[in-house]
Structure formats: C-alpha cells, structure tokens
C-alpha cells in the first residue's frame, strides 16, 4: 500500500481528524489532531489491510521555542511491508496526547521518554513518570527553551571550567611540554568561601532546604 492509499483509508474513517498530509516528503506523513488519536492508532494497528503492528519509533519534537511541540510516530507493517509517519502537534503550554500504550507495548517506554525530555503528557498512560532523568529533575531538557537548573541536590550542574582562570605555568621537562603545576588552587574552595564561591554555597543550601 502506498502512502496515498493509506491516507484515503484514514480519510474515509477519520475525515475530521486529518489536518495535513504530505506524500512527497522524504518520509510521507499524515498529520492528525490529538483528540481521537487512540482510535486512529487502534485502527492503524488492527485494520487487516493496514496492519501496522510495529511502532518503529516514537519521537518527541520541538519545532522551535515559540511554536508547537510534536510527536512523530514512525509505523511499519511487518506483514504488508509498508510504512507511514503520523504526526501530531500540540500546544506548548498544554501538551496532552492520548496514550497509545495499549496499542503498541513499545510505546510505553517511548512515551515515558518523550514525557521526560519534552514534557508531553500522554493521557491514559498507566505509569507516566520520568525514565532517563532523575525523578526530581526540573524542566524538560530537549525543549529548545530549556535552561539547565543550576543546582541539583547541592551539586553544580553546568560544567564550569575553573582551570581557565588559573595563572601558574612552569616548564616541566619530564613531559616535554609546558605543563601546569598549581599553586593557586580553585578560588573559593580552599581559601574559605570567598568571592564567587560564597553566593554559590548559599544558593545550594537554599535549594536543598526547599
């Protein structure tokens, strides 16, 4: 079955749900509305002519910091050897999509991953919690407007290259190059919490208390 036939088949049953279709793209896709997605997914999986038994990939998408989030379902049929891509776009602030976990079991963890990294909520998922990040991580890392949290349980999260600030060079003939030998160490670490070390320590305490 080619993508156009698949589209017609869907069109016959879910005419109102289909928003866009592009059969000339690299991966031909059909964009549907999120509201009745569970029915569409069940139809795609169970219809004997379509028989999309295998969900190759479920991928969260962020189309830009001001636009919508999306989910891309890449489907493949082992029996019929055809493929189609289903796209769903959802609002950034209120991202809710019906879960297809009961249709394809592999969607279980992939939906958890999309929730973890994009903050897309899958309604009806029985176990929707973070899977890769820790449970108490803040924010949705793969969104384009994500800003990494500064402290996690008192540990600094963004990598800080302290060594750039160091000054002492000396020649080390053993290694053949000019190699660091440190005299002034990490500022604020050894000499008590001064300067920039001071406010960071305060912040971390606040975080752990809160």
């Amino acid at each position: 079955m080619n993508p156009e036939e698949i589209h017609q088949k869907l069109q016959a049953k879910f005419a109102d749900e289909i928003i866009a279709v592009n059969t000339d793209a690299l991966d031909p896709y059909i964009q549907v509305a999120p509201a009745r997605f569970l029915e569409i997914a069940t139809f795609l999986c169970e219809d004997p002519a379509l028989s999309f038994k295998s969900l190759m990939s479920l991928s969260g998408m962020d189309y830009g910091a001001e636009t919508e989030l999306g989910v891309v379902y890449s489907l493949h049929s082992l029996a019929k050897k055809h493929k189609i891509t289903i796209r769903i776009n959802v609002d950034r602030t209120d991202a809710h999509i019906p879960s297809a976990e009961t249709v394809w079991r592999t969607a279980d963890w992939h939906e958890r991953e999309a929730y973890d990294l994009f903050g897309i909520h899958f309604d009806g998922h029985r176990d929707l919690r973070r899977i890769l990040c820790p449970e108490d991580w803040e924010g949705w890392p793969l969104r384009k407007d994500y800003i990494v949290q500064e402290y996690y349980h008192g540990m600094r999260v963004p990598y800080q290259e302290d060594w750039q600030k160091y000054e002492t060079f000396s020649r080390n003939p053993e290694r053949g190059h000019h190699v660091f030998e440190f005299e002034s160490k990490v500022p604020g670490l050894l000499n008590g919490s001064q300067e920039n070390g001071d406010d960071s320590a305060g912040k971390s305490e606040d975080r752990t208390d809160g």
């Binding site: 060594w163 160091y166 000054e167 002492t168 060079f169 020649r171 290694r175 190059h177 000019h178 190699v179 660091f180 030998e181 440190f182």
Partner: peptide, 13 residues
C-alpha cells in the same frame, strides 16, 4: 586533574 591539561605554547607566562 591539572596535570592532564597540556600546555604547548612556547611563551612563558
């Protein structure tokens, strides 16, 4: 950790 950073400049500090 500092000894893993290699300096190749031929100018002294």
């Amino acid at each position: 950790r500092e000894n893993g950073i290699y300096h190749f400049s031929k100018y002294s500090p």
